[in-house]
Design a protein around this nucleic acid. Structure first.
Lengths: 241, 241
DNA sequence: GAGCTTAATTTTGTATACATTATTCTGTAA
DNA sequence: TTACAGAATAATGTATACAAAATTAAGCTC
């Protein structure tokens, strides 16, 4: 049966257990290092959404005591990557279909602003870089290499945020991404949607060359709206669970 | 001498010290309660930007041990309200003029999206509520009551985010506000700017009545841009430090 | 007194111990 | 078997103890 929007995408619920092949962590400011490692593992799906984080297991896996581990978990909870329940510990945050679609609206607003700011500021050198990424992206598309395509696609969007030169804006994007990034490891684009995305990227280059902020902002908002619709369709296609 | 954009608004640097008149904290899930209290104190300016958070002092003030206090500080650091330096503890985050202006750009993007989403969704009952807040706001303006004006102004903007019905969007706004809220306790609006703000609010009501999302979004982006310019002027006017 | 070196103190970072709350297991009754 | 009660276990929550780093103070030279 199909998942309702209010249902979770965490299809399985796993106890953490002892995790193998974990690099040891150097002493001092442990909690920051643990935060990075746990975030990486959560984003990469090594720890499933909804999985409970058992302090003891994680401590043994990382070979640290509970003090820095708890500090790390609290920090991740403040970021929204983990959910705390009093006296019942922490779970990896789950995300509903509705929340995924919500997040694309927010990312659209952020990318739109990034575009508005970036276009008037871009230097010739930066423009060359973006053009080069764009060319590489087209090559990956021609080779039907979706993973490669995504890498360059991501580079272009990252570059726009860099050029926009607004630290808070980048930070907000990072936070939103943190909560939806797992999806990018599974969602595949359809061919016709891919064509549209390419076309929108062409328009972005034109707007950048024209240093037209409002125009680039509008294109990016439209681009993210396309992605949102694409994800919505992909979720529709998913077979159940 | 004037502060350069890269200089901090934290004009004084205070050691925490024992804080008096602190309500005791009930046991269990202490760190969450401490987070709330510390956040409140930081936002209200009871602990100055740049002030170092001495664990021992804070623990004595709140009558808790270092464990939950450290967890709380780590959580606040993840929110960006506090800055950690390895082996040197935590300071209340400072904010530069440039960062303040950056934050208004981001808030503008978020409010713009909120407007786009809210206008097509608003019910007659909700519209009546907003109209009522708007009327109250106008009254406070007529009475030259700036504090009262800000309360209703805030209510209207909150209402638009509520009607937009996007949890992540609200969360992002909360995070951005957390980092700039201290400013709202000091920045005063000039009379002509006040007039402009009122006019923009009138337009917002019209767009809401027309259920015109793009229009409301545009107005809100412009409204926040006005605020940004207003804050920039206010910062210019500040006598030095 | 200024500037440096070094010891004393303070503060942060980590590990462990104890208290409290959840969860699981076991045995019994229907 | 199912349902429940209560004990046993395990997990989280908090406090304290110890280690390492940073800061401050003291002493010394010039």
């Amino acid at each position: 049966m199909r998942l309702k929007p209010e249902h979770h995408l965490a299809f399985f619920y796993a106890r953490t257990g002892f995790l193998h092949n974990i690099k040891p962590i150097e002493r001092q400011t442990l909690h920051l290092k643990i935060v990075d490692r746990l975030r990486e593992m959560i984003e990469h799906g090594d720890i499933a959404p909804g999985a409970k984080l058992i302090e003891k297991d994680l401590c043994e896996s990382f070979a640290v005591s509970r003090t820095p581990m708890r500090e790390a978990i609290r920090a991740l909870a403040a970021e929204g990557l983990v959910v705390l329940t009093p006296n019942r510990g922490a779970c990896v945050a789950t995300i509903t279909e509705a929340q995924i679609l919500e997040s694309f609206l927010v990312i659209g607003a952020l990318e739109g602003l990034a575009g508005e700011l970036a276009a008037p500021r871009i230097t010739e050198a930066q423009l060359d870089d973006v053009r080069s990424m764009h060319t590489s992206m087209l090559e990956r598309h021609a080779a039907n290499d979706l993973d490669g395509y995504y890498i360059y696609n991501r580079q272009i969007h990252d570059a726009i945020f860099e050029i926009a030169d607004n630290e808070l804006l980048k930070e907000m994007r990072r936070i939103v991404f943190n909560r939806t990034i797992r999806l990018r490891f599974i969602a595949r684009i359809a061919d016709d949607e891919w064509q549209v995305a390419i076309k929108e990227h062409e328009e972005m280059i034109v707007a950048l060359e024209a240093r037209d902020g409002p125009q680039l902002g509008a294109i990016l908002r439209r681009h993210l709206e396309s992605k949102r619709v694409q994800i919505a369709r992909w979720l529709q296609r998913q077979p159940s669970a």
